[in-house]
């Protein structure tokens, strides 16, 4: 980890987080599924035909895999920070092999503890927000609040 520590004291409401780019390749999705379920039966997450039969454009990235990416967006932005909460809405599906942009914006700072809240987004190349949500991150503080 090379990024410097980000302190609660240095954050302002309105600060941008990221963006970072992420594309989940089909093999990466399969690797994740192996860790998640260990089941190699075809599903909407792993198999094109199954996905298409369910009305999807292709196999999709599991929601909890995208949550892990959003988590890493935050912890890479704030090394030493702890993700206290992540709450997302899966508005539209995330397809394999598409470059998506993850970003966030700081929306609140707690008065009584070194915790920030932020909105988080995962959007497709057209700018459509496929996943939206909010997160709470505990950060190191320089002194007592």
């Amino acid at each position: 980890m090379t990024s410097p520590t980000l302190y609660f004291d240095d954050i302002e409401i309105g600060d941008d987080i990221g963006p970072i780019e992420r594309a989940v390749t089909h093999p990466q999705a399969l690797d994740f599924i192996a860790v998640w379920t260990g089941d190699d039966r075809p599903t909407r997450f792993s198999d094109r035909d199954t996905a298409v039969s369910e009305g999807l454009a292709g196999p999709i990235v599991p929601g909890i895999m995208t949550m892990a990416f959003i988590s890493s967006l935050l912890t890479e932005w704030a090394p030493g920070g702890k993700l206290a909460m992540l709450d997302v809405v899966f508005r539209q599906v995330v397809l394999h092999d598409v470059q998506h942009t993850l970003s966030g914006i700081v929306t609140d700072k707690a008065d009584d503890r070194p915790e920030i809240q932020c909105d988080v987004f995962l959007q497709d190349p057209q700018g459509t927000r496929l996943i939206i949500g909010k997160a709470a991150l505990e950060l190191p503080a320089k002194g007592d609040l």
Partner: peptide, 20 residues
């Protein structure tokens, strides 16, 4: 059910928009 914002946070954000 599908919102994640508190009214207090909206009010703070109005302040951000005004400052901008």
């Amino acid at each position: 059910d599908d919102s994640r914002a508190t009214v207090e946070q909206y009010v703070k954000w109005v302040g951000v928009l005004r400052r901008r």
